[in-house]
Design a protein around this nucleic acid. Structure first.
Lengths: 228, 228
DNA sequence: GCGCCGTTGTAAGGCTGCTGTAAGCTGGGC
DNA sequence: GCCCAGCTTACAGCAGCCTTACAACGGCGC
């Protein structure tokens, strides 16, 4: 899962990146409103952690723009503005949660995960398709209850596909999920990862198929043999 | 929108009911864990406001049961237990938000509405005919809850037919829907797409028929076998 | 420091399956 | 019977995807 952290205090953002990393998230760090705007227009994140006091503009404005274009990405506002009106204001502007500095990293992660589990997904548990299981908390795939060894890229692709069970995932989304802002891929990298993941899954006996929908993306589903 | 408030302090729950009423919500007030359990099993609420310190049991247990049976109803925990571990604990148990008493009614409403605006439970965004489902948001067809792989043209035709459920769709409309303004089709392309879609649907076991109304267009409907 | 090995990103070429077209077929209506 | 709308099948073109190979990189043991 890739998160965007918009925070101009370098020390704090480093701390956040580290803490979130331990919790199992990749993060893109940005320090200005302008950068954040650009990133949010071109990249899709699992969630955004947004500071309001940015050097070149108000974080709330970014949030409002995001919601104005119906972007449902969860946004957790993180700020020193702790007054009641500030909190109400932030929430009314479309924030999903509002946390006042100083805060405990543990609470941030807990609140973040409360947001990430939103689309009906269960608590930090695991997702199943046929005999394939993916443990969201430990980012660990198992087949027939046998834990599998996958490279980190393979795991990342599988995680996204599993979280998007029943939906098609575009190549762009995979790219964002894996590379985030560092998204300089001058090649068919995604295709290669999918290929490697498919090979792993079929070698290990997973009764699961990653379908290609040409020009659209990928879809993971239970393996169906045509019952001729 | 109907909310459930579980709170044993009568004065506070009256206050909540009043405040939420002004904000435009109906509320059911319950004061015990036992009552809450029953209500949550039989009634579906837009959201639940849950106190933890109940006379006959722990609110967190109710929350865990709710999540255990995959009930996605937003739950906002409202309690005097304000410690960090309490908050983290509550959120990890499946709460969507955690508010510590004393609190401002205004913030409660703002946080509540942040939860209610979640897109998570938009069930109205998919159309059903027999065992065929079409998710408008993701443009994804499913048969018996199994996501189906369709080409983008097939999906486009199905989308239009499903959106026009109960009405006849003319060939011209299909053409416009697929090609837009660039509508240069010097062939029977539409007929071919419909044919391919019919084949897909019947191969995959959809209990649905695309009827032809000569000289008019197409109509999708539940499959009716002639009871000979 | 050095070699080993798995992972990662790139590149090139082959292949698949979608697409639109056309041609022949079917069946209803007159 | 005849006509015409729609059905079915076949096929070539092509973009998108798959597959394979390879070199660079980094971690690890020694």
């Amino acid at each position: 899962m890739r998160l965007l952290v918009v925070e101009d205090n370098a020390q704090l953002s480093q701390l956040l990146a580290k803490g979130l990393g331990i919790a199992g998230y990749e993060t893109d760090l940005l320090a200005t409103a302008a950068e954040a705007r650009g990133a949010l227009l071109t990249t899709s994140y699992a969630a955004v952690i947004l500071d309001l006091g940015l050097p070149d503009g108000d974080g709330l404005a970014i949030l409002r723009e995001l919601r104005h274009r119906k972007d449902p990405t969860p946004v957790l506002v993180l700020t020193a503005r702790g007054g009641l009106q500030d909190r109400v204001n932030g929430l009314r502007s479309g924030a999903d949660d509002y946390l006042v500095k100083p805060f405990a990293l543990e609470e941030l992660v807990a609140r973040l995960e409360a947001q990430l589990r939103r689309p009906g997904q269960q608590l930090g548990s695991s997702l199943h398709i046929a005999n394939l299981e993916f443990d969201l908390r430990n980012r660990q795939a198992s087949i027939d209850d046998q834990p599998q060894v996958l490279s980190s890229r393979e795991t990342a692709v599988l995680e996204l596909l599993m979280r998007s069970k029943g939906r098609v995932v575009s190549k762009k989304q995979v790219e964002d999920h894996i590379f985030g802002l560092a998204g300089d891929v001058a090649s068919n990298a995604i295709e290669v990862y999918v290929h490697r993941l498919r090979k792993q899954l079929s070698d290990k006996g997973a009764k699961v198929q990653i379908h290609t929908i040409r020009g659209v993306g990928y879809l993971i589903a239970e393996e169906k043999r045509d019952p001729v």
